[in-house]
C-alpha cells in the first residue's frame, strides 16, 4: 500500500503519480478504446495519455517517464516534458490523480 495524497498536487519531474482508487483506466471492449472511469463521468484519453497513465504506478517518477518516452519516440525531451506535466496537472486539478507521498526523513 502506497501512502498517497490527492489534494493540491503540483506535478513536477520529482512527482510519483498514480491513479486514485476512484479513477480507473480501462479498455472498453464495446467501443474498442481506452477510457478513464471517474465519479459520474467517463474521460476519453488519447493514445499518448494512455501510455503515460500506464506508467503511473506511484513508484516511477515523472522524470523517469519522460526519459522513457523521449527515448522511445526519439523526441525532444523538453517537448515531451511539457506535454506530460501539463496532461498530468490537468488530471490532478480535476481530482483524478494522486501522488505517492515523499518519505519524511
Amino acid at each position: 500500500m502506497i501512502a498517497t495524497r490527492s489534494r493540491n498536487i503540483s506535478v513536477s519531474e520529482a512527482s510519483r503519480p498514480l491513479l486514485p482508487r476512484h479513477a480507473r483506466l480501462k479498455f472498453d471492449e464495446t467501443r474498442q478504446r481506452w477510457v478513464i472511469l471517474a465519479p459520474e463521468r467517463v474521460l476519453a484519453p488519447d493514445e499518448i495519455a494512455v501510455e503515460v497513465l500506464q506508467l503511473c504506478d506511484g513508484v516511477r517518477s515523472v522524470e523517469a517517464m519522460i526519459d522513457q518516452l523521449a527515448q522511445k519516440y526519439t523526441a525532444e525531451r523538453s517537448a515531451i516534458a511539457t506535454d506530460v506535466i501539463a496532461m498530468l496537472q490537468d488530471l490532478a486539478d480535476k481530482g483524478f490523480l494522486a501522488e505517492a507521498r515523499e518519505r519524511t526523513p
Partner: peptide
C-alpha cells in the same frame, strides 16, 4: 456485456 460503463 452490452457496453455500459457506469452504474448509479
Amino acid at each position: 456485456e452490452i457496453g455500459v460503463l457506469q452504474i448509479h
